[in-house]
Protein backbone atom coordinates (compact mmCIF):
# COMPACT_ATOMS: atom_id res chain seq x y z
CA UNK A 1 0.00 0.00 0.00
CA UNK A 2 1.35 3.43 -0.95
CA UNK A 3 0.50 6.25 1.40
CA UNK A 4 0.81 9.95 0.67
CA UNK A 5 0.96 12.82 3.09
CA UNK A 6 -0.02 16.41 2.47
CA UNK A 7 -0.32 19.78 4.15
CA UNK A 8 -3.26 22.13 3.68
CA UNK A 9 -3.61 25.78 4.57
CA UNK A 10 -6.51 28.22 4.40
CA UNK A 11 -4.06 31.15 4.24
CA UNK A 12 -4.50 31.54 7.99
CA UNK A 13 -3.43 35.09 8.74
CA UNK A 14 -0.03 35.07 10.42
CA UNK A 15 0.94 37.05 13.52
CA UNK A 16 4.26 38.69 14.31
CA UNK A 17 6.20 37.41 17.34
CA UNK A 18 4.43 40.03 19.50
CA UNK A 19 1.01 38.74 18.42
CA UNK A 20 0.17 41.61 16.08
CA UNK A 21 -1.47 40.37 12.87
CA UNK A 22 0.63 40.51 9.72
CA UNK A 23 -0.83 42.01 6.57
CA UNK A 24 -2.81 39.88 4.15
CA UNK A 25 -0.04 40.45 1.59
CA UNK A 26 2.71 39.22 3.92
CA UNK A 27 0.62 36.21 4.92
CA UNK A 28 0.20 35.28 1.25
CA UNK A 29 3.95 35.60 0.62
CA UNK A 30 4.54 33.42 3.68
CA UNK A 31 2.18 30.74 2.35
CA UNK A 32 4.24 30.60 -0.84
CA UNK A 33 7.41 30.15 1.26
CA UNK A 34 5.70 27.43 3.28
CA UNK A 35 4.70 25.55 0.13
CA UNK A 36 8.25 25.64 -1.23
CA UNK A 37 9.61 24.57 2.14
CA UNK A 38 7.08 21.70 2.35
CA UNK A 39 8.73 20.10 -0.68
CA UNK A 40 12.18 20.44 0.91
CA UNK A 41 10.85 18.88 4.12
CA UNK A 42 9.56 15.84 2.22
CA UNK A 43 5.82 16.53 2.03
CA UNK A 44 3.97 14.96 -0.94
CA UNK A 45 1.15 17.45 -1.43
CA UNK A 46 0.46 21.10 -0.63
CA UNK A 47 -3.13 22.31 -0.71
CA UNK A 48 -4.71 25.75 -0.37
CA UNK A 49 -8.34 26.16 0.67
CA UNK A 50 -10.50 28.98 -0.69
CA UNK A 51 -11.62 31.50 1.93
CA UNK A 52 -12.74 35.11 1.83
CA UNK A 53 -12.33 36.49 5.36
CA UNK A 54 -9.86 38.58 7.31
CA UNK A 55 -8.76 35.53 9.27
CA UNK A 56 -8.25 33.57 6.04
CA UNK A 57 -7.46 36.05 3.23
CA UNK A 58 -7.08 33.36 0.58
CA UNK A 59 -9.63 33.68 -2.23
CA UNK A 60 -7.19 32.95 -5.10
CA UNK A 61 -5.12 30.02 -3.90
CA UNK A 62 -4.42 28.86 -7.44
CA UNK A 63 -2.32 31.99 -8.02
CA UNK A 64 -0.22 31.15 -4.95
CA UNK A 65 0.04 27.52 -6.07
CA UNK A 66 1.43 28.74 -9.42
CA UNK A 67 4.15 30.67 -7.56
CA UNK A 68 5.00 27.52 -5.59
CA UNK A 69 4.97 25.45 -8.78
CA UNK A 70 7.60 27.72 -10.31
CA UNK A 71 9.96 27.08 -7.39
CA UNK A 72 9.43 23.33 -6.86
CA UNK A 73 9.93 20.11 -8.81
CA UNK A 74 8.04 17.22 -7.22
CA UNK A 75 5.43 18.28 -4.68
CA UNK A 76 1.82 17.94 -5.85
CA UNK A 77 -0.26 21.13 -5.63
CA UNK A 78 -3.98 21.59 -5.33
CA UNK A 79 -7.01 23.24 -3.85
CA UNK A 80 -8.32 22.13 -0.46
CA UNK A 81 -11.03 23.03 -1.20
CA UNK A 82 -12.39 25.00 -4.16
CA UNK A 83 -15.93 26.15 -3.35
CA UNK A 84 -17.29 24.91 -6.67
CA UNK A 85 -20.91 25.85 -5.91
CA UNK A 86 -20.08 29.57 -6.15
CA UNK A 87 -17.59 29.27 -8.99
CA UNK A 88 -17.79 28.41 -12.66
CA UNK A 89 -16.63 24.85 -13.31
CA UNK A 90 -15.20 25.94 -16.67
CA UNK A 91 -13.05 28.59 -14.98
CA UNK A 92 -11.98 26.20 -12.21
CA UNK A 93 -10.97 23.64 -14.82
CA UNK A 94 -9.07 26.30 -16.78
CA UNK A 95 -7.20 27.56 -13.73
CA UNK A 96 -6.18 24.12 -12.54
CA UNK A 97 -5.34 22.77 -15.98
CA UNK A 98 -3.13 25.86 -16.34
CA UNK A 99 -1.52 25.00 -12.99
CA UNK A 100 -1.15 21.44 -14.24
CA UNK A 101 0.64 22.70 -17.36
CA UNK A 102 2.95 25.02 -15.41
CA UNK A 103 3.84 22.38 -12.83
CA UNK A 104 4.41 19.55 -15.28
CA UNK A 105 1.35 17.57 -14.22
CA UNK A 106 1.33 18.16 -10.48
CA UNK A 107 -2.13 19.74 -10.09
CA UNK A 108 -5.06 18.37 -8.14
CA UNK A 109 -8.38 19.78 -7.05
CA UNK A 110 -10.68 19.08 -4.13
CA UNK A 111 -14.20 20.31 -4.81
CA UNK A 112 -16.41 21.48 -1.96
CA UNK A 113 -20.10 22.19 -1.78
CA UNK A 114 -19.68 25.04 0.67
CA UNK A 115 -19.02 24.49 4.34
CA UNK A 116 -17.34 27.87 4.10
CA UNK A 117 -20.14 30.09 2.94
CA UNK A 118 -18.78 33.61 2.45
CA UNK A 119 -18.39 33.20 -1.30
CA UNK A 120 -22.13 32.81 -1.92
CA UNK A 121 -23.26 36.38 -1.19
CA UNK A 122 -19.95 37.71 -2.54
CA UNK A 123 -20.56 36.24 -5.99
CA UNK A 124 -24.33 36.55 -5.99
CA UNK A 125 -25.34 32.97 -5.25
CA UNK A 126 -28.14 31.92 -2.93
CA UNK A 127 -26.88 29.59 -0.23
CA UNK A 128 -30.27 27.91 -0.18
CA UNK A 129 -29.40 26.53 -3.65
CA UNK A 130 -26.04 25.10 -2.68
CA UNK A 131 -27.03 21.49 -3.19
CA UNK A 132 -28.39 22.04 -6.71
CA UNK A 133 -25.45 24.28 -7.59
CA UNK A 134 -22.92 21.71 -6.47
CA UNK A 135 -24.61 18.70 -8.05
CA UNK A 136 -24.75 20.32 -11.48
CA UNK A 137 -21.33 21.90 -11.33
CA UNK A 138 -19.58 18.78 -10.06
CA UNK A 139 -21.13 16.78 -12.92
CA UNK A 140 -19.92 19.37 -15.44
CA UNK A 141 -16.46 19.37 -13.88
CA UNK A 142 -16.29 15.58 -14.31
CA UNK A 143 -17.10 16.08 -18.01
CA UNK A 144 -14.42 18.74 -18.40
CA UNK A 145 -11.81 16.52 -16.76
CA UNK A 146 -12.40 13.83 -19.35
CA UNK A 147 -11.02 16.19 -22.02
CA UNK A 148 -12.38 16.81 -25.50
CA UNK A 149 -15.27 19.03 -26.58
CA UNK A 150 -18.06 19.38 -24.03
CA UNK A 151 -21.78 19.59 -24.64
CA UNK A 152 -23.73 20.48 -21.54
CA UNK A 153 -27.01 22.06 -20.56
CA UNK A 154 -28.19 23.02 -17.09
CA UNK A 155 -29.63 25.70 -14.86
CA UNK A 156 -26.51 27.09 -13.20
CA UNK A 157 -24.51 28.41 -16.14
CA UNK A 158 -24.95 28.98 -19.86
CA UNK A 159 -25.05 25.82 -22.02
CA UNK A 160 -22.01 24.49 -23.84
CA UNK A 161 -22.32 23.11 -27.35
CA UNK A 162 -19.41 20.99 -28.50
CA UNK A 163 -17.19 23.50 -26.72
CA UNK A 164 -13.43 23.10 -26.84
CA UNK A 165 -12.23 24.13 -23.37
CA UNK A 166 -8.52 25.02 -23.17
CA UNK A 167 -5.81 24.45 -22.08
CA UNK A 168 -6.03 20.79 -23.04
CA UNK A 169 -4.77 18.24 -20.57
CA UNK A 170 -1.35 16.96 -21.53
CA UNK A 171 -1.63 13.47 -20.09
CA UNK A 172 -5.17 12.73 -19.01
CA UNK A 173 -7.22 13.95 -16.07
CA UNK A 174 -5.49 15.28 -12.97
CA UNK A 175 -6.61 13.87 -9.60
CA UNK A 176 -9.90 15.34 -8.43
CA UNK A 177 -11.73 14.74 -5.19
CA UNK A 178 -14.98 15.75 -3.56
CA UNK A 179 -14.71 17.07 -0.01
CA UNK A 180 -17.30 15.56 2.34
CA UNK A 181 -18.02 16.72 5.86
CA UNK A 182 -20.49 14.08 7.00
CA UNK A 183 -23.35 13.95 4.54
CA UNK A 184 -23.61 10.38 3.22
CA UNK A 185 -25.36 11.58 0.06
CA UNK A 186 -22.18 13.51 -0.79
CA UNK A 187 -20.25 10.24 -0.49
CA UNK A 188 -22.60 8.63 -2.99
CA UNK A 189 -22.21 11.60 -5.32
CA UNK A 190 -18.40 11.34 -5.28
CA UNK A 191 -18.69 7.67 -6.28
CA UNK A 192 -21.34 8.32 -8.91
CA UNK A 193 -19.30 11.05 -10.62
CA UNK A 194 -15.97 9.25 -10.25
CA UNK A 195 -14.16 11.56 -7.84
CA UNK A 196 -11.89 10.52 -4.98
CA UNK A 197 -13.38 10.90 -1.51
CA UNK A 198 -11.86 13.57 0.74
CA UNK A 199 -13.20 13.20 4.28
CA UNK A 200 -12.95 16.47 6.21
CA UNK A 201 -12.91 15.37 9.83
CA UNK A 202 -12.79 18.34 12.16
CA UNK A 203 -14.59 17.11 15.26
CA UNK A 204 -15.47 13.94 17.10
CA UNK A 205 -14.00 10.44 16.80
CA UNK A 206 -12.52 9.89 13.32
CA UNK A 207 -13.40 6.18 13.48
CA UNK A 208 -17.07 6.98 12.92
CA UNK A 209 -16.12 7.87 9.33
CA UNK A 210 -15.10 4.26 8.61
CA UNK A 211 -18.66 3.59 7.50
CA UNK A 212 -18.33 6.41 4.95
CA UNK A 213 -15.30 4.90 3.31
CA UNK A 214 -17.07 1.54 3.18
CA UNK A 215 -20.11 3.30 1.70
CA UNK A 216 -17.83 4.91 -0.90
CA UNK A 217 -16.29 1.59 -1.96
CA UNK A 218 -19.64 -0.14 -2.26
CA UNK A 219 -21.12 2.79 -4.16
CA UNK A 220 -18.18 2.71 -6.63
CA UNK A 221 -18.90 -0.96 -7.18
CA UNK A 222 -22.59 -0.31 -7.67
CA UNK A 223 -21.85 2.38 -10.27
CA UNK A 224 -19.39 0.06 -12.03
CA UNK A 225 -16.40 2.27 -11.34
CA UNK A 226 -12.84 1.19 -10.59
CA UNK A 227 -11.61 1.69 -7.00
CA UNK A 228 -10.78 5.30 -6.12
CA UNK A 229 -8.79 6.59 -3.16
CA UNK A 230 -9.98 8.02 0.16
CA UNK A 231 -8.14 10.87 1.86
CA UNK A 232 -8.50 12.29 5.35
CA UNK A 233 -8.17 16.02 5.99
CA UNK A 234 -7.96 17.19 9.61
CA UNK A 235 -6.60 20.21 11.49
CA UNK A 236 -3.56 20.12 13.72
CA UNK A 237 -0.20 21.48 14.75
CA UNK A 238 3.17 19.85 15.33
CA UNK A 239 5.82 21.11 17.77
CA UNK A 240 8.72 19.54 19.65
CA UNK A 241 6.51 18.31 22.50
CA UNK A 242 2.80 17.69 23.09
CA UNK A 243 2.76 20.47 25.67
CA UNK A 244 4.31 23.03 23.35
CA UNK A 245 2.05 22.12 20.42
CA UNK A 246 -1.05 22.43 22.59
CA UNK A 247 0.10 25.66 24.22
CA UNK A 248 0.70 27.26 20.81
CA UNK A 249 -2.47 25.95 19.17
CA UNK A 250 -5.13 26.16 21.91
CA UNK A 251 -5.54 29.95 22.25
CA UNK A 252 -5.70 30.33 18.47
CA UNK A 253 -8.17 27.45 18.11
CA UNK A 254 -10.35 28.83 20.89
CA UNK A 255 -10.44 32.26 19.28
CA UNK A 256 -11.32 31.06 15.78
CA UNK A 257 -13.84 28.43 16.80
CA UNK A 258 -15.49 30.89 19.20
CA UNK A 259 -15.97 33.36 16.35
CA UNK A 260 -17.36 30.60 14.11
CA UNK A 261 -19.54 29.34 16.96
CA UNK A 262 -21.15 32.76 17.30
CA UNK A 263 -21.85 32.86 13.53
CA UNK A 264 -22.96 29.29 13.05
CA UNK A 265 -24.23 28.34 16.47
CA UNK A 266 -21.98 25.52 17.54
CA UNK A 267 -20.39 25.04 20.93
CA UNK A 268 -17.57 27.27 22.11
CA UNK A 269 -14.54 25.06 22.78
CA UNK A 270 -13.49 24.44 26.35
CA UNK A 271 -10.22 23.04 27.64
CA UNK A 272 -12.12 19.81 28.24
CA UNK A 273 -13.39 19.62 24.65
CA UNK A 274 -9.91 20.54 23.37
CA UNK A 275 -8.33 17.75 25.42
CA UNK A 276 -10.88 15.32 24.02
CA UNK A 277 -10.23 16.42 20.42
CA UNK A 278 -6.45 16.26 20.81
CA UNK A 279 -6.66 12.88 22.56
CA UNK A 280 -6.53 9.52 20.78
CA UNK A 281 -10.25 9.57 19.89
CA UNK A 282 -10.47 13.18 18.77
CA UNK A 283 -10.16 14.88 15.41
CA UNK A 284 -7.26 17.28 16.11
CA UNK A 285 -3.66 16.25 15.36
CA UNK A 286 -1.91 18.49 17.86
CA UNK A 287 1.25 17.24 19.50
CA UNK A 288 4.79 15.98 19.13
CA UNK A 289 5.83 14.20 15.93
CA UNK A 290 5.36 10.81 17.60
CA UNK A 291 1.86 11.63 18.90
CA UNK A 292 0.73 12.97 15.53
CA UNK A 293 2.30 10.10 13.56
CA UNK A 294 0.62 7.49 15.78
CA UNK A 295 -2.74 9.14 15.37
CA UNK A 296 -2.38 9.43 11.60
CA UNK A 297 -1.40 5.78 11.22
CA UNK A 298 -4.24 4.60 13.45
CA UNK A 299 -6.86 6.59 11.60
CA UNK A 300 -5.66 5.86 8.05
CA UNK A 301 -5.95 2.18 8.93
CA UNK A 302 -9.33 2.57 10.64
CA UNK A 303 -10.73 4.54 7.69
CA UNK A 304 -9.11 2.43 4.97
CA UNK A 305 -7.60 5.64 3.55
CA UNK A 306 -4.30 6.09 1.72
CA UNK A 307 -3.72 9.79 2.10
CA UNK A 308 -3.60 12.15 5.05
CA UNK A 309 -3.62 15.93 4.67
CA UNK A 310 -2.86 17.91 7.81
CA UNK A 311 -4.52 21.32 7.79
CA UNK A 312 -1.67 23.13 9.54
CA UNK A 313 -1.68 26.60 11.08
CA UNK A 314 -4.36 28.75 12.62
CA UNK A 315 -4.77 32.54 12.46
CA UNK A 316 -2.45 34.14 15.00
CA UNK A 317 0.38 31.62 14.81
CA UNK A 318 3.69 32.98 13.54
CA UNK A 319 5.34 32.08 10.25
CA UNK A 320 8.26 30.65 12.27
CA UNK A 321 5.92 28.36 14.22
CA UNK A 322 4.42 27.18 10.94
CA UNK A 323 7.82 26.56 9.36
CA UNK A 324 8.81 24.48 12.38
CA UNK A 325 5.56 22.52 12.15
CA UNK A 326 6.19 21.88 8.44
CA UNK A 327 9.75 20.74 9.10
CA UNK A 328 8.67 18.36 11.87
CA UNK A 329 5.78 17.05 9.80
CA UNK A 330 7.92 16.38 6.74
CA UNK A 331 11.05 15.10 8.42
CA UNK A 332 9.62 13.21 11.39
CA UNK A 333 5.85 12.68 11.25
CA UNK A 334 5.68 11.37 7.67
CA UNK A 335 8.57 8.87 7.92
CA UNK A 336 7.28 7.64 11.27
CA UNK A 337 3.69 7.28 10.01
CA UNK A 338 4.99 5.36 6.95
CA UNK A 339 6.95 3.08 9.26
CA UNK A 340 3.91 2.46 11.46
CA UNK A 341 1.78 1.68 8.42
CA UNK A 342 4.24 -0.69 6.73
Amino acid sequence: MTYTFGLDTFGDRNAAADGAPLSHAQTIRNVAEEGVFAEQAGVDFFGIGEHHTGYFPMPAGDVVLAAIAARTQTIRLGSAVTVLSSDDPVRVFQRYSTLNALSGGRAEVILGRGSSIESFPLFGYDLADYEELFEEKAALFAELLRGGPVTWDGKTRPPLLNQDVVPHLESGPFPAWIGVGGNPQSVIRAARLGFGLALAIIGGPPARFAAYSQLFRQALEKFGRPPLPVLVHSPGHVAATDEQAKAEFWPRWREIISVMAAERGFAIPTEESFDRETGPDGALYVGSPETVAQKIATNLRALDATRFDLKYGMPGLTHDQLMTAIELYGQQVIPRARELLS
Binding site: P184, Q185, V187, I188, A211, Q214, L215, Q218, A219, K222
Partner: peptide
Amino acid sequence: AASGDPDDIALITELL
Protein backbone atom coordinates in the same frame (compact mmCIF):
# COMPACT_ATOMS: atom_id res chain seq x y z
CA ALA B 1 -36.84 9.05 3.30
CA ALA B 2 -34.92 11.64 1.28
CA SER B 3 -36.54 13.98 -1.23
CA GLY B 4 -36.67 11.37 -3.98
CA ASP B 5 -36.45 7.71 -4.90
CA PRO B 6 -35.67 5.36 -1.98
CA ASP B 7 -33.28 3.51 -4.32
CA ASP B 8 -31.00 6.55 -4.08
CA ILE B 9 -30.56 6.02 -0.35
CA ALA B 10 -30.71 2.21 -0.33
CA LEU B 11 -26.95 1.82 0.06
CA ILE B 12 -26.77 4.53 2.73
CA THR B 13 -29.51 2.80 4.67
CA GLU B 14 -28.00 -0.66 4.32
CA LEU B 15 -24.56 0.42 5.51
CA LEU B 16 -25.20 3.30 7.89
